[in-house]
Design a protein around this nucleic acid. Sequence first.
DNA 1: GTCTATACTCTGATAGAC
DNA 2: GTCTATCAGAGTATAGAC
Lengths: 220, 220
Amino acid sequence: MAKTTTRRSTAADRDRDTEQRILDAAHAVFLRRGTAGARTQEIADEAGVNKALLHYYFRSKDRLAEAVFARTMRGLFPPLLALLGSDLEIEEKVRRFVAFELDALAKNPYVPAYLIAEMNQHPDRVPQLVKSLTGLEIAGVVPKVRAVLQKQIDTRMKARTLRPIAAEQFVVNLISLCIFPFAARPLLCAALQLDAKGFQKLIEDRKTALPRFFLDALRP
Amino acid sequence: MAKTTTRRSTAADRDRDTEQRILDAAHAVFLRRGTAGARTQEIADEAGVNKALLHYYFRSKDRLAEAVFARTMRGLFPPLLALLGSDLEIEEKVRRFVAFELDALAKNPYVPAYLIAEMNQHPDRVPQLVKSLTGLEIAGVVPKVRAVLQKQIDTRMKARTLRPIAAEQFVVNLISLCIFPFAARPLLCAALQLDAKGFQKLIEDRKTALPRFFLDALRP
DNA sequence: GTCTATACTCTGATAGAC
DNA sequence: GTCTATCAGAGTATAGAC
């Protein structure tokens, strides 16, 4: 895909730029229309190029979709895994996780619904992607994070400074509480009669209410 | 759509049956393919009828999609609103909500991802649908439920038998914790290395872990 | 690398017989 | 009400000039 000649790179740079522009455009269109609902024409328009170029750089719509999916996953999860696997206190992990996640999603509100739709339509793509999330480690980073977390919980449990909880349930609860409101935003807005501003307020409130709620659940 | 003649109904019944069969087929196909990814041919096949009949009963794919969306929403939320608006104790509401929801979704695992994708693609359809969820009440049932819940919380709060929490956050947390794991199932299965059986186990565990977690968060 | 033009497939929708 | 046959349009993908 990238040029292999050693030419002084103005051309190579432009190649890269174009490929990048297409990827950015595809990203935007896939996220707002969904993969099946997206049209290659719209992507080409948004990238300021011709449809044929999409096929020059990415062989098909399907491959382009795969690239965008991978890119979106990679943008969201590695920082969170790094955080959960760190040696910070549980309480601090929860606070930072919520803060980071709510901020990131407020800036990219389409991400949750897109990822959910996409992973359910192509469940086969998920496992290999998860494995490669933070590099090429054989053992995979996810089980390691889980082990770190479980050990941390067990220690605190024995010291009677934390209620017992399985590491899986801990993580599932945490990401559910952060991500779901964005995924179901239209429903929440309709049910609670919120406009864009009101939803923003709801999320703002959650930034303080959520860590409190979560940590209260774990406090003995 | 339905016959208006007063004929003795064998024919009218068959009409109804066919319409119902088409709707059932559309329901199944839309849920597993997503609305944009679904093909009318596949729906016709699944209903055992010809494509032309879809247009006879429902004018277009779009209207059929709307009908399925409404049907799915109506199947999921009214019982939950009734529960939350009832005069049961908070604790009992939480327990029953979790039990009901996890059971319902275990039987219909595609529902969350489908609804999320659909409501984000057609946010305009949601408000009118929410209004008509339990009938034709002018005031709407949702604000009423919210008021009931908030009053209940306030009373318990003053009696120091419950931590303060806004009714909105209460509800958002509850549905997030119940629904999200199903919506993100492929991701959870890949990350936690679960097969179908393992996921089932995770949900089974949640039936007891979730009410405990949630009520611990509210216990003073 | 980038464009124009076009081929080909698929899909939603309709016409009309029964 | 239900079917067969068919259309018009849209969509992805490719060929070939520059």
